[in-house]
């Protein structure tokens, strides 16, 4: 049976689209047939992060209107033939589709794909409802910041209420050096609070930005050995059921002088 996974967060800008693009690509690299759906109608970005923006002819809206077939709207990735994107309409709002229509689209996709990943828009309104209704599992993305964690908690509650019972946590943009200095919540802090199973921890990494500049997901490009790329790869293996130890993101030990300096400056808070 195909797995239908929504990538969601509540708060905007925490890394849903980045996560969807990288997990989609990494799953495809491991031999699964993967469809990624952009459910962010009106503010689509998944096409850009995947570098497929110039190949979009039709979108989900035309499929639903009967103006084209589903396979005509799917953009297949030439670099990785196991991966296909179902784009969102850019000139429509989030009310352009209904949860039932999304369910139908996803249902049709499960006939040809092992994994369907849905990139959820920020917020908890109609677009969110559209994205979570077809899903059987959810990846809740958050950063170790109070507002993001609070919103993630709200989303966990809404997912439970909508019968999406299998939820996993991805903590994105962790800065180990800040955690070390008690200036940022740790993985354990966030996990204690949200209390859903941890699927992965992705460090804050400027190469994420570089990869989006190019439209090449990290796991695909020259930076595929970076820590963030490895983190996404590990998430995929955990999704497959493998037990993969969590990365050691601790920074190299401070040298003597910076320790002394910090001692005299006092710990910032």
């Amino acid at each position: 049976m195909s797995r239908i996974i929504v990538v969601t967060s509540g708060k905007g800008g925490v890394g849903k689209t980045t996560t969807t693009a990288n997990l989609g690509m990494a799953l495809a690299q491991r031999g699964h047939k993967v469809a990624v759906i952009d459910a962010d109608f009106g503010l689509r970005n998944l096409d850009l992060l995947l570098g497929l923006e110039n190949r979009i002819v039709y979108t989900a809206v035309e499929v639903l209107a009967g103006e084209c077939r589903l396979d005509q709207a799917l953009v297949r990735d030439k670099r990785q033939p196991n991966l296909a994107l179902l784009p969102a309409a850019q000139n429509r709002t989030k009310d352009a589709v209904t949860p039932d229509q999304m369910k139908k689209l996803v249902g049709a996709l499960t006939k040809a794909f092992h994994f369907v990943l849905i990139d959820c828009p920020a917020g908890i309104e109609m677009g969110f409802q559209n994205a979570i209704t077809p899903a059987r599992e959810a990846i809740v993305v958050t950063t170790p910041e109070v507002a993001a964690v609070r919103d993630a908690d709200r989303v966990v509650g809404l997912l439970e209420a909508n019968d999406v019972k299998r939820m996993y946590l991805v903590i994105n943009r962790l800065k180990p050096a800040m955690v070390e200095q008690d200036m940022m919540m740790s993985v354990k802090d966030v996990q204690d609070i949200l209390a859903i199973p941890l699927l992965g921890v992705v460090p804050d990494d400027e190469r994420v930005v570089v990869s989006t500049n190019r439209g090449e997901p990290l796991v695909l490009g020259a930076d595929s050995t970076s820590l963030a790329a490895t983190a996404f790869g590990n998430i995929v293996r955990r999704l497959e059921g493998e037990k993969v130890p969590f990365l050691d993101l601790n920074p190299p030990p401070e040298d003597f002088f910076s320790r002394i300096r910090r001692f005299f400056q006092g710990r910032k808070s």
Binding site: E145, V146, V149, R150, R154, M184, M185, S269
Partner: peptide, 21 residues
């Protein structure tokens, strides 16, 4: 003793989430 910001974040979240939930 001033609480570090990491501890404040966790403590404040635990309280606000108890109310949210």
């Amino acid at each position: 003793k001033k609480e570090n910001s990491r501890a404040s974040a966790k403590r404040r979240l635990q309280i606000v989430l108890a109310h949210d939930r």
